[in-house]
Write a protein that binds this DNA or RNA. Structure first.
Lengths: 195, 195
DNA sequence: ACTCGTCCTGTACGACTGCCCTAGTTGGAT
DNA sequence: ATCCAACTAGGGCAGTCGTACAGGACGAGT
């Protein structure tokens, strides 16, 4: 029982969110305006306030939605990974994939920053990242990495930091070898030492 | 042979830069306006364009100046550090010091983001960070850490990432133990394993 | 045929934006 | 006393901002 009008409305709403996800990295969070947004989405400016109570609420929903998608993708990737060593490769591959100056990475960082000025947004983002860290930590634990939660936190932070630096055109020559050390005290190797 | 007027002018310029360094984290890079800036600095808006050719140029100078100061302080701290293990503690202490939502950290990240939209700024920041990484890498090399440049890159990225996550209220319980692994294949320990 | 709900348009308001220009004001040098 | 350079105040231009609100379009239900 969906009227075609309602269906069109839903599509417009979606287009607005998509436009926001594009424009936030392009112009910066605070520089995304209703009119630019409407132009990108191919609608009139007033439509924005029909579908959303305010501009910030639109941006919040667009950002958290996109982040949820990204983290879900990363999680899926993780599920198909066997060893902790491969996990490093996987995460680094995702770092390679994101150039650090691409839309997805920038959206992430812009959302981080915006969250320092918006309590509601901060809570939603913290929830997302915490969930990912926990899931990643559980995976590390099941694969015998010591201090799994802490390692997950550091690794996640590392990846974000590398992305940040990547955006400056600063390449780490081969971070994987270094990052692998983070898992180097995994039980089997530690036992080698303790023998 | 400096006239008192020139001296006063220099002070005003300084105050404007200081106000910018405060306002960028508070409001976001693109949300710092000439009038807000002038109000914070206690001058009239037109003074801004007397001392600076444009608003972006003011912001760029303020950000890079502040970053230069921060990195110089970090470097000084490093010089007084003896072992690589202590270096981790030192860097983590600086992470503890910066809450992740404090002005200095946010300014850093805001500048990162602004640099993706301003070539001149990106070059100046890349220069700063590259110089620090190289100096840090040299220090690590002198202290026998393998792959010092890559380790420096990863550690610097890690710290930035941890700061980012910290801003979300996400605490890593004890990252130092994990981060220490990054230096865990230092020659003396590696030799222990290879015995 | 008529109402209703949903979606969208056009217009408007007050506030804010970067930047510019003119007219001082000040205090040392000549 | 005159000049000069550095500095500051005030006003204004042309534009953008977020948001509100009145009205039009249009298909579904009765």
């Amino acid at each position: 029982m969906v009227s075609p009008a309602a269906e069109r409305g839903r599509a417009v709403r979606e287009r607005l969110l998509h436009a926001a996800a594009e424009l936030i990295p392009e112009r910066g969070w605070t520089a995304v305006s209703t009119r630019i947004l409407a132009e990108r989405a191919g609608v009139t400016p007033s439509v924005v306030h029909y579908h959303f109570p305010s501009l910030p609420s639109l941006l919040n929903e667009a950002a958290t939605g996109e982040m949820r998608k990204m983290l879900a993708g990363l999680n899926e990737l993780l599920e198909t990974t066997r060893s902790p060593g491969d996990a490093i490769e996987t995460m680094l591959a995702s770092v390679e994939q994101y150039t650090g100056a691409d839309a997805a990475s920038l959206l992430f960082v812009e959302a981080y920053l915006a969250s320092t000025r918006d309590d509601a947004l901060r809570e939603r983002i913290a929830e997302l990242v915490a969930e990912f860290r926990q899931r990643f930590g559980g995976w590390l634990e099941r694969h015998g990495v010591p201090a799994p939660l802490e390692t997950a936190a550091v690794l996640a932070a590392c990846v974000d930091g590398l992305l940040l630096h990547r955006g400056l055109g600063l390449q780490a020559n081969d971070p994987s070898a270094v990052l692998r050390r983070l898992l180097s005290t995994a039980p089997e190797e530690e036992r080698q030492c303790e023998q």
